[in-house]
Computed example of a mutant assay.
Amino acid sequence: MTDLISAAAALRARLQAQGAVTVIVEYDGYSDSGYVEHIGVHDKDGAPIASAEEAEIADLFYEILGRRFDGWENDEGACGVFTWDLRTNELVHEHRVRYEAYNEHTVSGWAGLGGEAESAEAREEAP
């Protein structure tokens, strides 16, 4: 863990030297593959900064993601956003896990289908 923290601290210093104050990393994955979809490095006014550190940023956040949610890209997968405030070193991670869900309904009899079947059932139930 200290290697990861040390790598993040060194990267933070280099990004701050370029005038960056925020890093945003968006990712998405499913069906056993996942990717960093977008890396945004921004200055104090929110303007994007071109950074030579993008590959290192991606590597760092892949490592964090793998440690927190190993297998995040499998099956229905997951997606999310990291927001790193370089001024305070606060890291916010929003992670959304996808899953398959279904609702089950059990209906007995012929009611609700209309036509002859419904009329016959209604006659049978009448006193």
Rank of each mutant, 00 (worst) to 15 (best):
Y30K: 03
E121T: 07
V25T: 09
T22C: 06
I64T: 06
N89Y: 01
G112A: 03
R123G: 07
D32K: 01
G77M: 03
V81T: 12
C79N: 06
G109A: 00
S31F: 15
S33G: 14
E54C: 09
E116S: 12
I57A: 02
G112V: 02
F61N: 06
L65P: 02
Y27A: 06
D85P: 11
I39F: 05
E76S: 11
W72G: 06
K44R: 08
N103E: 14
T88K: 02
D43E: 13
G112S: 05
G114E: 00
A58M: 05
G114V: 00
T83L: 01
P48H: 01
R87A: 13
A126D: 11
L113D: 12
L60K: 01
V23H: 04
A117I: 13
E53R: 00
R96A: 09
A126H: 10
K44T: 15
H38I: 15
D28Y: 12
N89E: 05
F82R: 04
L65A: 04
R96P: 04
V92M: 09
W84K: 00
E53M: 02
L113H: 14
D45Q: 07
P48R: 00
E116K: 10
A50T: 15
I64S: 14
L113I: 12
G40C: 09
A47M: 02
G77F: 08
W84Y: 13
N89G: 08
C79M: 04
H93S: 10
